[in-house]
Design a protein around this nucleic acid. Structure first.
Lengths: 142, 142
DNA sequence: GTAAACCTTGACGTCCGTGTCAAGGTCAAG
DNA sequence: CTTGACCTTGACACGGACGTCAAGGTTTAC
């Protein structure tokens, strides 16, 4: 299977496939031409990688958990990797709650009837603004 | 209030504050020095902007909904603004679904008990792999 | 007077998955 | 032989929210 076929088979561009290889996410043999040659399992691997990208994981993380996917048998250390994936999952859960909270806040802004009470505002700047429920802002270090 | 104080008060870097101003998210007067001067309400504004950034909104969107937060009184055009906020709310709902979807994908890969069944793998390459619950891959055109 | 701590604008760097162009090599069909 | 579809590596571009450095001006403390 050459790169164009794999591209068509997976819906992922050739450029992206070469990038995956460069990132250590995808393997290929080489023909005497220099052309890349993929086995059929590459379709599964690319699918998995795409899933992980769509799940918001970075190349680094995917590279770490990927040996579980294409090695013969996972050898013990898989527990660590699964733990890592679980961390990412938990992070997503936190983001979920976070965004749900924001939405609820906007819903509150919307619920107080802007069209019925034209004097109300999004932010009560001349009020205390103490009950706006903002979170850990002072810890915005990166 | 000068920029350094506002930075300390909000936990947002001076660079970021200037960026907010450049993006039309934050206003400042100027002292004869050229130094920026902020009123105390800027703390609220910055907090709000941070909240919105953290919720995943872009500068453009925040700029659109922000007039409700710092203008004197919303004057009549509030209906438009409410519509805009409602759009943002819907956007948040989409993000919520998006993240929930990511989490579900990870859950799918995590669900089959890796630590209890040490022989199992993330991807069943030599199995059929048909029940792995991957979704619309053939339509991954951008 | 001079150091330190602030401020200014401007511009380039970062990350990351990918698009896109450049300048070529390879191969099958006509 | 030529055309055209395919492949190669290399390199630049992007968007977004900043970090960071440069080169300077201002204010405060001693």
């Amino acid at each position: 299977m050459r790169i164009g076929e794999l591209s068509k088979a997976t819906g992922v561009s050739s450029r992206a496939l070469r990038y995956y290889e460069q990132q250590g996410l995808l393997r290929s043999e080489r023909r005497p031409n220099g052309y890349r040659e993929y086995g059929p399992e590459s379709i599964e691997v690319v699918a998995f990688v795409q899933d992980m990208f769509h799940a918001g994981l970075s190349s680094d993380v995917i590279r770490d958990i990927l040996p579980c996917a294409w090695d013969e048998r996972p050898r013990g250390d898989c527990a660590e990797l699964v733990a890592r994936v679980r961390q990412v999952r938990d992070e997503l859960v936190r983001q979920e709650h976070h965004i749900a909270e924001r939405r609820r806040r906007l819903d509150t802004y919307l619920a107080d009837g802007y069209e019925t009470r034209p004097g109300s505002r999004l932010l009560s700047l001349d009020d205390q603004g103490a009950e706006l429920g903002r979170s850990e802002r002072s810890s915005t270090k990166r």
